[in-house]
Structure formats: C-alpha cells, structure tokens
Design a protein around this nucleic acid. Structure first.
Lengths: 219, 219
DNA sequence: ACAAATATTTAGACAAATCTAAAATTATAT
DNA sequence: ATATAATTTTAGATTTGTCTAAATATTTGT
C-alpha cells in the first residue's frame, strides 16, 4: 500500500479540493502540510506515477478516481479513530486530532471494519464530519456556514470546518457545542462580526469564527 | 522520542535477553528482526549513543536501565493493543500480532493509559504474557514449560512462548487454549515427543511444541 | 506589453534505515 | 597452535522524504 507521507498528501489534496477549487496548487499543499514547495513537487510526481493524481507542471494537481478512493480510506480511518477516542476512551473533541493522525496509517482493512462495527457504524465524527463507509461512500449533508446566514435565521450546529485544538478549545470556552441551536441576532457591517444566540446565552463572534461553524436546518 | 526502528530493536533486545543470556549477539538480533547483521551493527551504535544499550564491538549488547524501561513501554503498548483487539474487536488470538506491531508505535502516554483503563487494567495479554504497568513494572509469574515436566505431572496452560500465527493456529486446530488443564501422560525417549491429556482429549506433541507451552501450578 | 513579483520546478545535499561486498575479529577443530 | 569457519564490522551504495538555493515559468500591475 501507500506510505504515510503519500497518505498524508492524498488526504490533504482531497480536503483542499473540497475547500477550494478542483485544481490544487503546490504552495497550498505545502502550507497545509507544513513543508516546502519543492518537497511537494517531488511528491506530486511520485503520486502521478502511481496514478493517484493528475499533475501538470505549473498547473496544479487533482485526484484521480483511485486517488480519491485512497484518500477516502485514510479519512475513514482518521474519523473512525477519532470517534473511538471520544466515545470509548473519553477524550475531549479537541484532543483527538494528533493521535488520529497516527492511527489513520495503521494498515488493516479488517481492523477498521471491526472498529466501525464496534462503534455501531457512526455516520459522523466528533467534529460533525461525515465518515465514509467501507466502499468510500460519504454522505454530504447540506449545511450552511454562519457567515452565509441572514439576520434572524437559525439552525443547529452540526460541524466545524476547522478542527484544530485551538479552535475547539475556543468553542468550549464560549460554551458552543455540536447540537446547539444557534440564531443570528445581528451582523455588524463595520467588522463583519456576528451577534448570535443559543438556548443559554448570547455572544459575538468574528467572521472567521462564523465561517467555521456549520449549521443544518437553517430557516 | 524514539523512532519505530529504534523501538523495534529495543523490544527485540529485551525479549532476547529474557530468552537467552544477558548479552545478545548481532546475528541473533538480525535473525529475529529479519534484517542483515550490518544493519544491526549500525543501529546498535545509534542506540549506544542514546544510552539505551551498552555495546562493545564484537561483544554483543545489553540494555541499560533506560533501555529496559523504554523497551517495557513498547511492550506495554503492544500487549494492551492486543488485548483490545481480542477483547473489544473480537479478533482471534492468532490475528492480532501484526496489527499490534503497528499500533505499538503510536505516541501518546495519555492514549495508552486511557486504553489501559478502558480494558480495566488487564494483567495478561491474549497469549498469557504479562502487561507492564504505566511505570514499567511487570509481574513475572513462575511458569514451567511442558518440556521441563515429568511424566504424571499436570498444570494449567497460561501462556505460549511463540505467539506467531502459525503456532497459535496449530493450537486452535489441536483444541488447546489458555486455561486448559494439561497432564503429561508419557514422554517418548526416541523422539522426545510428549503424550498429553486435557479434560476433553489426548494428543501427542513434539518437544518443540512442548517447549512453547507454559503451565502454572504444576504438580 | 512588459517589468516586477510570485509561484513552481530543478539540482544537489542530507538524514534515517537499509543493503552488499569486503575486511577484521573471534571461535572451532584438528 | 594455527588454519579454517563463523561472526561482526566497515565502506560505500540505495531509497524515501526532506531541505536550500538557483533556475524557470506564471501572474500581476501599470
């Protein structure tokens, strides 16, 4: 199978294709993976040789079907392990990313399928991200980021785009958790900050934060 | 911390010190780890530089206290993961070694301690080997291998020296499992084979097999 | 359109871990 | 005791993934 480095590139390219365009640039990958552009170029050539990506010099890169499926396998493992850590080992949602980064590279189809069964086939990980099934099928629920909502609209917090410990600890501190109902009270045009309200309290968040909160059933 | 390769060497040296003498030879390590003697020499120098082993050219190697504790940490992780795989994910005892070889290198003290708690602090892994605690303390129960027993003596099967899938599958086929009471009926001097008896059946095993079965409470 | 800025690739080096082949050391056998 | 065998180490090469610095291509601003 693929090396850990290769798997990390696949996962990263998949995520960047989602967040940005279908063609992902060398520098974008480099900054995500915290490495140098030259290293990325080297790796892209290797991935292209293995038919995991389509790569044209200076033109960026995108995943082939094989690459996409391989990326989804890694993502499936990452999210199942995160679910295990939170549900079974009582980790907090802001502590699991680093560990799952390691666990996701353990090689055994049987292991991951048994883990899936043990967790009762969860559909979402602790950050609200969908978990691909054994065939790489993934349910993309239609969510809306707070930064796309209008004053007066409300919905349920079901996911976060940024699942770094920093951001998650911020949400903990502000008493925001998945499942909370959130209403947009006001948008300040000057700095684009959002005044929001939950069942228990009101607060102001920056547009950056608003952008990273995904709600469903927005009305 | 230490690399996967370093951890594998530490674990191997620890096991060989147990099974053989305190000084372990280059070739012995090479054959256990399935690599070349020259590679072992290189690594031993590296481990010696990190004060994990005492190494004198041509004289073999042994663990320092630091090396022993580091080895025990890896062994603790390996055995806890094996226990998890068997107890929680319903793996058979002959399927878990390879996967645990990967899982044992995941770095997080918190993870392994939480896993330990989740499993209710098991004392023995699925092969009857003792699991070191968080401080590297290990309970060495006094067991006897069948090859050291006399005709007429009996005991309870509590461990296997060889936990390769091949050997474990052999035991499955012969209907031998941990916890079984085993009695030595006869020893054939010609080929050193052992005639043994369990609650349910009798069988003949070679001296090699007898050597790998550990019994406790032998009388 | 074209100079300057930015992005990307190439070339060459490096560290970790391994290997082969040759040299050095230690063990063994007569 | 010494030649032969076995073991171990050294020297130099290889692979993977990374890096820096220089070269090349693309984009941007005027």
């Amino acid at each position: 199978m693929y090396s850990q480095a290769e798997e990390n590139y696949l996962k990263t390219i998949y995520a960047l294709e989602k967040d940005f365009s279908n063609e992902v640039s060398t520098n974008l990958i480099a900054s995500k993976i915290k490495t140098k552009a030259s290293s990325v170029t080297d790796m892209l050539k290797k991935l292209a040789n293995k038919d995991l990506v389509i790569y044209k010099k200076y033109q960026g890169v995108y995943l082939t079907e094989l690459g996409r499926l391989s990326a989804l396998k890694v993502i499936r493992k990452h999210r199942l392990w995160e679910s295990f850590l939170v549900q079974k080992l009582q980790f907090n949602w802001d502590e699991v990313h680093e560990i799952a980064e390691q666990l996701e590279h353990v090689k055994s189809e049987l292991l991951i399928n048994k883990l899936d069964a043990f967790l009762r086939y969860p559909k979402l990980d602790p950050h609200g991200d969908p978990i691909p099934d054994a065939h790489g099928r993934i349910i993309l629920s239609k969510t809306m980021s707070i930064s796309d909502m209008k004053i007066g609209s409300a919905g349920t917090l079901v996911g976060v785009k940024d699942s770094s410990a920093t951001f998650l600890k911020y949400l903990n501190k502000k008493n925001l958790a998945l499942g909370d109902k959130i209403k947009v009270i006001d948008i300040e045009p000057f700095d684009n900050s959002y005044h929001i309200e939950t069942k228990t309290h009101r607060l102001v968040i920056t547009s950056n934060v608003a952008d990273n909160l995904c709600l469903k059933n927005v009305k």
